[in-house]
Design a protein around this nucleic acid. Structure first.
Lengths: 192, 192, 192, 192
DNA sequence: TATGAATGAGATTTCATTCAT
DNA sequence: AATGAATGAAATCTCATTCAT
């Protein structure tokens, strides 16, 4: 039921998986405990439903990244993709955030998130055209950058950092692109 | 008491804050519930004690980063610092990981971690000498890179990624340095 | 819930506030701990609910005392009031008794009883018509008599004294009336 | 040990038997748990020791009441006795108060108080010379008056009533005497 | 379908008592 | 004699889940 999914997304986002009470969710959904268990066999099932929904959106996102070349076009491609990622994250990032909060060793729940992010990294490393700076393992770099992207959005979402959207996208794209390929020689450099 | 702190670190690391039971902790510490409450007024107090301890270690770490210049020396400085960070993380990262799991809105607990990471970012942005690539806000970049570093270590710790230590340090240093300054023009570039 | 209130009244009466276990109460109510905490946030809340209920009954009692004159009519008025008091006490005196057992300094609980008895004393002193014997302060006397009435009922309830109801009422009315006004001169006096 | 007895008296007085923690007592006595159990096998033993001490004082008090006659001499006798009672109560009344708080059904503890007060009543009824007003059972009256005396002192001690000592003694003596014998015909009567 | 009162297993917390030093 | 850290049985309280209506 949609009401429950919405309520769950909101409550899990606010309090995390463990601290979220079924009671909180049914109150937010303006329904009853009975109804909750009519649609979901248990609390984790609702969480998984949300997670799978997000995973599907992310799956699509994964495929939407074109080749990331070392030139400006590659950076733009990256930025555009980050913009789409950001949008999904704004809608459902709460659940993604809760994933990591679904604490290690947790019955399956954490696994979904893990696999999803791993998938992104694989995808990203596949899209990299050109080379990487000396000493940089593409697989490791891709994973690290995915970590950065996800985490930074999480910080932004949770109010930990406040920065305007465009600056964030420019910076993440710039950082990621530079990280992968190094700045184009002769590119303008801002004095710090 | 040391036994309880150790046990707490281990259990919180394994199960996260919420899923960790006082019972798990006292069993791991081979002591009794009574003893637990003799030293800590409640579960959160033990967690906070651990967190503050880690925060202190991190504080020291923060000050140990020298100037990060755009040349190879800067990259080495960064790598050395990452190695130290990594060591602390290996010992206590479990608690750091649990911070984010101590989930939003959680009475103070989450705040410690938030502030700590913010502090790192500020420190990192202060150490940056030279300039940053066009479009890259130093403050945003620093925060993003801290997010990357912390998160990647978390992934490594939780077994999500498996990579040998040196490769990881090389890559993180390379990525971070490149992200901040771009690859030095003419540097050898590996074919992907 | 009525079952819990009844059970609480009975258990508090038997064992006092502190010695009463939530377990005793839910067993007496033939229900579960969960149900207890569904209706009351804690043990004290149930006690307070009972106390407030008794206080309400007592409030009504207070208003039901007519003028107590020095003649026989005054004594009858007093006796009738004592009979009503006694009835309330028999039903709920257990809680009243537990008040004093809810021991000094106890978060609010004791206060209710204190104020209630003080209210009775004020009321009684207002109803006294005529005069009081030399050296007798009406306010002090009223308080002392309320103490006597309450305490004696408590003794009777707790089985500390055994006496038939009519004799008790006659004696309390006689003692109180005599205490307030002295025996009517020339009244028949029993040899001891 | 004297320190523990003093501390016990004070703590039991403040919090009652159940709410008093052994910890409170040893802290007040500036000693340790170990020492407590060196001198007393358990918490109740300390309470009983205090109670027996008070009982001994009271025992003496009981015997010190001379004949209470219906005339002014009887009233003075009563007043003098009340003054002595009051003194004992001021020192140890806390324990007496805690007796009734040692809640019904409590392992022996409550019994001591009960028997003591019953003894007072018996003693008082024996000392009554003359007669009692019509309808007043001497035994019941004596018990009721003892209840009044004890309870009123308790109220005074616990700060529930505030009145100066002489007025209280005058009033209690006056009330008790009048209650037993009625005012002497022709005695001055204060307008209310 | 929907409800929400009821449940009870399991979590946290307290505190009288013990015992090695 | 004195200590106080340690204990664990027993208490309070929580919350995911069930079920009669």
């Amino acid at each position: 039921m949609a009401k429950l999914l919405d309520a769950g997304a909101q409550v899990f986002a606010t309090k995390g998986f463990h601290a979220a009470r079924v009671d909180d969710i049914v109150k937010a959904a303006q329904t009853s405990h009975g109804t909750f268990y009519l649609y979901f066999p248990n609390k984790e099932a609702l969480f998984r439903a949300l997670a799978e929904d997000v995973a599907a959106q992310m799956e699509g996102l994964s495929e939407s990244l074109g080749p990331v070349t070392p030139d400006e076009a590659g950076k733009s491609e990256l930025r555009a993709w980050l913009a789409r990622f950001s949008e999904v994250y704004e809608r459902s990032g709460a659940v993604i955030g809760a994933w990591t909060a679904a604490e290690t060793g947790d019955s399956e729940v954490g696994r979904i998130g893990t696999e999803l992010l791993g998938g992104f990294a694989v995808m990203l490393s596949r899209r990299i055209s050109g080379g990487t700076p000396d000493g940089v393992e593409p697989a490791v770099a891709a994973m690290a950058l995915v970590a950065m992207i996800e985490r930074y959005q999480y910080y932004a979402l949770s109010g930990m950092v406040r920065a305007d959207r465009d600056a964030v996208l420019d910076t993440l794209a710039g950082v990621t692109h530079a990280a992968l390929f190094g700045a184009v020689a002769g590119a303008p450099v801002r004095a710090s």
